[in-house]
Each structure stands twice: as structure tokens, then as C-alpha cells.
Design a protein around this nucleic acid. Structure first.
Lengths: 178, 178
DNA sequence: GTCTATAGGACGATAGAC
DNA sequence: GTCTATCGTCCTATAGAC
């Protein structure tokens, strides 16, 4: 049921992920769903808790990444480098959608806490606060802007200008650390 | 009336900016508001059009900025460096709130178009696509993550680790261009 | 142009049968 | 535990007086 809620928030937004729609997506009825999650807030809390658990695993993987923390952070922040069904990515996107609605403070603070944890790990590796800040900001920029707003293409009147590849960006930021 | 709608979207989110609330904020009645904006979509379109106009002025200011495009872009993307009542900033935040709800494709594509325009100008100045990409991403990261989610503080269990100042980040990125 | 009144529909949540 | 049925509330939008 939580999976269904998460899918709907990611796909259609917070507002469309109603009890009715979630129950239908999960293959149960509204009453059945409401037995396990007595309120909408309970659904949100469920997703926030899930994010915390997935994040613990992610931080552990990050600190022991073979190519280093910076490479790991940027690569796992880039939509083009994440498998579409990655559990952590889906959960982050869902919680971000909840937070953006402005109705769920717990979702917002969970995201802030997540970014702080990432920043701490990056800072421990690179040492320099300015470099760590840039890496964190690029990671945030990668995460929260690209396919986040599913453009229908009508917004780009002219041909798109060249954009650099993820590898080039990573190489550039690695150079900063030396 | 459009100002009232914009303020409400920024302050309380898309979902709370109803006809009733907007009319009250604007000091008119619901019927009066509906005479000028016959549907909710008309209000959204009004904000999208306003964003386009403000953006034209911003791009013009950007290309003739005394300290260069990169400095201008990063500084006008940082919440700590923007006056709280900046019209463009308020409008961007509002349109972003609308886009995040997933219900207004025009708001989403307007934002994508805005980012593309900024990226084009940066690329024209710095030349290197990778550097331009990093600057754009940092700008996006500055805009869409910091105070965007108004944390109540409960999300930070430990003391916050040191974060670099905007000036340090700008200095770092300027060094990339050489 | 601006107002009141209200239609019509969707949503969150409750009650109670099975 | 899961279902159907329903209540109360809030929202978009319409109708019509002034």
C-alpha cells in the first residue's frame, strides 16, 4: 500500500494521490487502506520513515564507495545514471513532492536532514567547506530540476544548447579537491 | 489580484491558494475575482505570463552585469542575497510551487524554458560546456533547496556542520573559467 | 464590475456489516 | 482485516441581482 502511495505521488503529484486513487492502485478498497493508515498523515509518515531507513543504507554505501564519495554522490544524484526503479530515488522524489505541497512539515525536515547528512560525508572527504558546498549544490541541482518538471517540450522555442555530460562535470569537480 | 494569488502560493502552497483565499487576500469577493480570472488555469497563466516578462528584463540585466554573468547568476539565485520582496524571485517561487503540484504543465515548461535561457547566457560567457553546466546546477541547487522547504529544525538532530559562504563558492567557480 | 447564493463534485474520515 | 455506504467539508464554477 505504501508502494502504491509512493508511485502515485511520484507519477501524478501529492494532490492526486488520494485515498481513493491509492486504494485502487494497491488493489484494495478505501476502507481496507484506512485500516492500516488511519489518516493521510499516517501515509506521509510511512514514506518519511522509509526514507530514513533507505538513507541509512545509502550513507553506508557512500562511505565505502570504491571511486570516492564525490563520485558516488554526483552519480547517484543524476537522473540519467539512476535505474528508473531505484527504491531510494523513488522515495526521495515522493517525499520531495509531499514537501513541495507545503502541507507536510515532517517531509520537509526529512529532506533537510538528508541533505545535511550527505553534506557531512562529503565534507569529511574533501576537507574544504567551499568545495563541499559546491558538490552538495550540484547534487541538489541535479536532483531537483531536470526531469522533476516533466516538460512537454513547448517550453523550448529554439534548439537546446549543448549541455555537458555527467562525466565531464564529475571530472571538473574532482579537480577542485586537489 | 494576481499579486494576492502569487503571495498565497509562495506563503501557503498551491493547494491553499483557493479562489476564496485569493479573493480575501486581494480584498474583493469571489465573484469579483472570477470575473477577471474565469478559471484557476487563468490565474496560473497570468503568473506564467508575468514570469516571462520579468525574465526578459532579468536576462537583459544579466548580460550587462558589471561583475560578469556568473557572479550575477549565482548571486541572484541565492536566497540569502535576494531582497525578500524581489518581484522576479517571488514569481519564480510561485511558479515553481505551481509546477511542483503536477497539475499545471504550462508552469513546468515555463520553468524549464527559464533555466535554458540562463544556461545559454552562461555558456556564451564561459565557453566551456562543463563549466557552464556546473554553474547552472549550482544556481539550481541554490534556488530549489535551501529555504524552499521551511524546516522547523527538528530535522537536524546534531549540530550543523560548517557551510561555505556564497562569496567563497563564487570565487571557486570563477577559478574554473580560467 | 462586483456582489450573494448555490449547484455540483471530490476528498478525508467514520460507521458498521461480513 | 477488508468491504460498502455515507456524512461533513471544502473547492471550482455558474446564475443572477444590483
Amino acid at each position: 500500500m505504501l508502494d502504491a502511495f509512493e508511485r502515485l505521488v511520484v507519477a501524478t503529484g501529492e494532490r492526486s494521490a488520494t485515498f481513493d486513487a491509492t486504494a485502487a492502485e494497491a488493489g484494495v478498497s478505501k476502507g481496507g487502506l484506512l485500516y492500516h493508515f488511519p489518516s493521510r498523515e499516517a501515509l506521509v509518515d510511512g514514506l518519511v520513515d522509509r526514507l530514513g531507513a533507505l538513507l541509512d543504507a545509502d550513507v553506508a554505501a557512500m562511505t565505502s564507495a570504491p571511486d570516492g564519495v564525490v563520485d558516488y554522490v554526483l552519480r547517484t544524484s543524476s537522473p540519467s545514471a539512476i535505474p528508473a526503479d531505484d527504491p531510494l530515488d523513488r522515495c526521495i522524489t515522493a517525499v520531495a513532492g509531499l514537501a513541495a505541497s507545503g502541507l507536510w512539515p515532517r517531509a520537509a525536515s526529512a529532506l533537510a536532514s538528508m541533505q545535511q547528512r550527505w553534506h557531512d560525508v562529503v565534507l569529511d572527504e574533501v576537507g574544504d567547506p567551499a568545495v563541499a558546498q559546491v558538490v552538495s549544490l550540484v547534487s541538489d541541482g541535479l536532483y531537483f530540476t531536470p526531469g522533476q518538471f516533466s516538460s512537454d517540450g513547448s517550453g523550448s522555442p529554439g534548439p537546446a544548447r549543448p549541455r555537458a555530460s555527467l562525466d565531464e562535470v564529475i571530472a571538473l569537480l574532482r579537480g577542485l579537491g586537489r
